[in-house]
């Protein structure tokens, strides 16, 4: 296998890992604050639709991005109201949000565009175009490093760079700021945070909001950068793969990057069966590659290869003692 194929493979790995990474970091904020979120999938889907729809109507992808984030945040707030204010079951709320998004997106798409649950194809300013980094063309001729810079690092849409920048930012917020310390504390021992006079409800709502914003970017990326327009069920289980990556990363930002890159690579390999055949000399079933993230997560969860311990207060509504 030649060098250029490898570059191409990693290039599509980055593209496929980006939505996973954004959704994974979204889940990280929420779950670190003690709110389980299996509604990542639904929020991404809603954001994907509203981004594409508004971008198609206004012709501006930035307005689309805002609309996508707003839709995702709205669902986040619903999750917050159900699981923080009314102390309902967070898992059931997540399931409901996934179905709500799956149904409403098609319903509204059909009402607005009459194209069988899809949006019109986005063109020009309706999409996030690839960005060519400075000197990318000049350096392309440099052996080895040239193609890496010009093909692999340069030439992605802005959201890809945002996603990768979010990793150190998330790490910094969670582990180097007061807000981050409190956020993590509220996911481990909310009573202690409450005793210290910090609002548990406020912190958890803040976490859920951040989760909504990040899921919104992830969804917008799907419909306005990775593809040009919304199609029914386009998130295609990515929210659950992100959830798997979150467990795989044991709720840590840098490991989230590695996990989503790995799962992105599986996705990229699924479309290039010839590459695997070249490397290991035998045919690997596409279905196996598709299922690999889930299988690996189950193995990690089983604790056979390093145990994944979720935040201690995860999934439990906080009831103040009287």
């Amino acid at each position: 296998m030649d060098f250029l194929t490898l570059i191409q493979l990693f290039d599509s790995t980055i593209r496929l890992a980006t939505p996973l990474l954004l959704a994974c970091l979204a889940g990280l904020f929420s779950e670190r604050a003690g709110i389980f979120d299996i509604g990542l999938e639904g929020k991404m889907l809603a954001a994907a639709f509203f981004s594409a729809a508004i971008a198609a109507i206004t012709g501006s992808v930035w307005l689309g991005l805002l609309a996508g984030m707003a839709a995702s945040v709205a669902l986040s707030l619903l999750h917050g109201v159900a699981s923080i204010t009314f102390r309902g079951n967070q898992l059931i709320s997540g399931v409901a949000i996934n179905f709500l998004a799956a149904g409403l997106t098609v319903l509204i798409a059909q009402d607005w565009f009459q194209q069988g649950g899809r949006t019109p194809s986005l063109m020009g300013g309706g999409r996030f175009e690839p960005i060519t980094l400075p000197f990318a063309e000049n350096l392309a001729a440099v052996p080895f490093l040239g193609p890496i810079y010009s093909e692999l690092i340069s030439g992605h849409s802005i959201l890809v760079y945002v996603a990768f920048a979010m990793v150190p930012l998330t790490w910094w917020i969670l582990f180097r700021t007061r807000f981050g310390l409190r956020l993590r504390a509220v996911g481990e021992n909310p009573a202690a945070v409450d005793t210290a006079g910090v609002s548990v409800v406020g912190l958890r709502y803040a976490a859920v909001l951040i989760c909504g914003i990040l899921c919104g970017i992830a969804g917008a990326y799907l419909s306005t950068a990775l593809q040009a327009g919304f199609v029914k069920d386009m998130s295609a289980g990515r929210g659950f793969i992100a959830l798997a990556a979150l467990i795989f990363a044991k709720w840590r930002p840098w490991y989230a990057l590695y996990a989503t890159l790995l799962f992105g690579l599986f996705g990229a390999l699924e479309t290039r069966p010839d590459v695997i055949q070249n490397i290991i000399g035998m045919k690997v079933q596409g279905q196996l590659l598709g299922a690999l993230p889930y299988i690996m997560t189950v193995i990690i969860l089983a604790g056979f290869v390093g145990k994944a311990v979720p935040p201690r207060a995860g999934g439990e509504p906080y009831v103040k003692e009287r």
């Binding site: 619903l78 109201v81 159900a82 699981s83 009314f86 102390r87 309902g88 079951n89 967070q90 059931i92 709320s93 399931v95 409901a96 949000i97 996934n98 179905f99 709500l100 799956a102 149904g103 409403l104 098609v106 319903l107 059909q110 009459q114 649950g117």
Partner: peptide, 24 residues
């Protein structure tokens, strides 16, 4: 012209109200 997905929405609302928003 109402798509089948209306049922998915109803299903979501039933799960939401009878499950997650039970306390409401």
């Amino acid at each position: 012209s109402i798509p089948r997905e209306l049922i998915v929405v109803i299903q979501a609302l039933v799960i939401l109200f009878t499950g997650a928003l039970d306390n409401m």
